[in-house]
Computed example of a mutant assay.
Amino acid sequence: MAAATLSEDGEPMMDINTTPLIDVMLVLLIMFIITIPIQTHAVKLDLPQDSNSTPPPVDPIKNKIVVTEDSQVLWNGAPVSLIDLRQFLDVSQQLVPTPELHLQPEANARYELVDEVLATTKRANVEKLGFVGNEAYANEF
């Protein structure tokens, strides 16, 4: 891209070469755009918390699972489903030190439900599990 120094009639050109000026302006524009701080358009809202579904806390020392005659599973006295039980077990296994887990099936509880609870604790890799309340049934046999 050689620049012509003579016009068509043989006189020297009197126009300024604006190509370097445009190049410098573009570089300055890009540098200006890069240095502008990123604008965040966050709207901070304080949403209400659902206080009705607060799960029973996971005790860092020991937790108790009771299987009742009415086919209910209780975690520290509050009724839970097997899915919620698995979530509580996962949370308790992440604590250091790992809390003890006490399993207390009632005398007339369905064996199938007790077996499902045991399978859930095995899938959660519970290492500290103990059966409590067995001394109440010592005279029945």
Score class of each variant (00 low, 15 high):
Ile36Val: 12
Glu127Lys: 13
Ala2Pro: 03
Val117Leu: 03
Ile83Val: 13
Asn139Gly: 09
Phe141Met: 09
Asn139Ile: 07
Phe32Leu: 01
Pro97Gly: 08
Lys62Tyr: 07
Leu29Cys: 12
Val67Ala: 01
Thr5His: 09
Asn108Ser: 13
Thr5Asp: 13
Leu47Gln: 06
Leu6Cys: 09
Gln87Phe: 10
Thr35His: 03
Thr5Gly: 14
Ala78Asn: 11
Pro99Asp: 01
Pro97Ile: 07
Ile65Phe: 03
Val132Phe: 02
Glu127Pro: 02
Val96Gly: 03
Leu82Gly: 12
Val66Gly: 00
Val96Ala: 10
Glu106Gln: 14
Pro79Asn: 01
Leu101Ile: 10
Glu8Ser: 15
Val117Asn: 02
Val27Phe: 07
Leu45Asn: 10
Arg110Cys: 03
Pro12Val: 04
Thr40Asp: 12
Met31Lys: 02
Val58Asn: 01
Asn76Ser: 06
Ala78Met: 13
Pro60Tyr: 01
Val91Asn: 05
Asp84His: 14
Thr19Glu: 10
Phe88Lys: 13
Ala4Gln: 14
Pro105Cys: 04
Ile30Ala: 11
Thr121Lys: 04
Pro12Ile: 02
Val117Lys: 01
Glu11Ala: 12
Ile83Cys: 00
Ala136Arg: 11
Met25Pro: 02
Leu29His: 02
Glu69Ile: 10
Leu47Val: 12
Pro56Gln: 08
Thr120Arg: 05
Ile30Tyr: 01
Leu85Glu: 08
Asn63Lys: 07
Asn76Asp: 09
Ser53Glu: 13
Ser53Met: 07
Gln49Ala: 11
Glu140His: 10
Leu26His: 05
Val43Pro: 00
Thr35Phe: 01
Gln49Lys: 12
Tyr137Thr: 05
Met13Leu: 11
Tyr111Asn: 14
Glu106Asn: 11
Asp46Phe: 11
Pro55Ser: 15
Val73Tyr: 02
Ala109Cys: 08
Met25Leu: 15
Leu103Pro: 02
Leu101Ser: 03
Pro99His: 00
Asp90Gly: 00
His41Tyr: 06
Ile22Val: 12
Thr35Ser: 09
Val117Trp: 02
Phe141Tyr: 09
Glu100Cys: 00
Pro48Phe: 00
Ala136Lys: 11
Asp84Ile: 13
Leu74Gln: 05
Met14Phe: 06
Pro55Ile: 13
Pro60Cys: 06
Ile34Ser: 04
His41Glu: 04
Pro57Gly: 02
Ala109Lys: 07
Gly133Ile: 12
Tyr111Thr: 13
Ser53Leu: 12
Pro57Thr: 04
Ile30Glu: 05
Lys122Asn: 15
His41Gln: 00
Thr5Leu: 07
Glu69Asn: 15
Asp115Thr: 15
Asp15Ser: 10
Gly133Glu: 06
Val117Cys: 03
Leu85Gln: 06
Asn76Leu: 05
Ser81Thr: 15
Ala138His: 08
Lys122Glu: 10
Ser53Ile: 03
Gly10Val: 05
Val96Arg: 04
Val24Ser: 14
Asn17Ser: 15
Glu135Met: 03
Ile34Lys: 03
Val80Lys: 08
Leu113Asn: 07
Ile36Ser: 02
Val27His: 09
Leu129Val: 05
